[in-house]
């Protein structure tokens, strides 16, 4: 039995690994954590990385909190551009509403993420508690085998701890603007995605 699905017309075979539904991207390994007890700081750019091996069709970007959102928070997807060593914005939503729970904001149209490296960016104007996210050591990294942390697991996220909040995230952001945060025991917030 083969798990490969023949794609019409192309002549080749590719694995169909697409899924539908709500997913929390950027996690890695069996111990991936997604408890909603992460606090995000004000004017702090959080950039959590994730891979797309085949394709991913994103219909919504969401935020899950255990308490009512008390600040303006926006979330966006960026794709890494090798030629310019920068990140280009694919889509963004927000600010999210002042309620608790799992809220989702529809994109203007479904975004088809092709194969590549992506960043789930989050930015807020205040210190917001109880957001879903990951422990640093359980995050994906840019390349397999790229050891970023300890405890025999990978993981780090990109950040800028003095990035002034803006409702509209920049169209591009140079790689050099962001630093690597690799320390275990810390957690970073993450938006979830609805795939269609």
């Amino acid at each position: 039995m083969s798990f490969l699905i023949e794609q019409g017309g192309g002549g080749g075979t590719v694995s169909d690994i697409r899924v539908k539904g709500n997913v929390l991207p950027c996690g890695y390994g069996v111990a991936t954590n997604s408890y909603n007890a992460v606090t995000m700081a004000a004017d702090y750019w959080y950039g959590l990385l994730f891979w797309v091996g085949g394709e991913m069709n994103v219909t919504h970007i969401g935020l899950q909190t255990g308490v009512a959102v008390a600040h303006d928070i926006v979330g966006g997807i960026y794709k890494y551009v090798y030629a310019s060593d920068s990140w280009t914005k694919v889509a963004q939503v927000g600010p999210f509403a002042a309620v608790s729970g799992m809220q989702a904001i529809a994109l203007g149209s479904t975004e088809k993420l092709e194969q590549g490296v992506y960043m789930m960016a989050m930015l807020g104007d205040g210190a917001q508690t109880n957001i879903t996210g990951h422990y640093t050591q359980y995050l994906q990294n840019i390349l397999p085998g790229f050891q970023g942390a300890s405890n025999n697991v990978n993981g780090y996220y990109l950040y800028n701890n003095s990035y002034t909040y803006t409702t509209t995230l920049p169209a591009t952001i140079a790689a050099g603007v962001l630093s690597i945060f690799p320390y275990t025991g810390h957690a970073a917030p993450c938006c979830y995605l609805t795939l269609g």
Binding site: Q103, A104, I105
Partner: peptide, 9 residues
């Protein structure tokens, strides 16, 4: 409402 929703208990 429209393209926005929240699920909460």
């Amino acid at each position: 409402k429209d393209g926005w929703s929240v699920v909460e208990k």
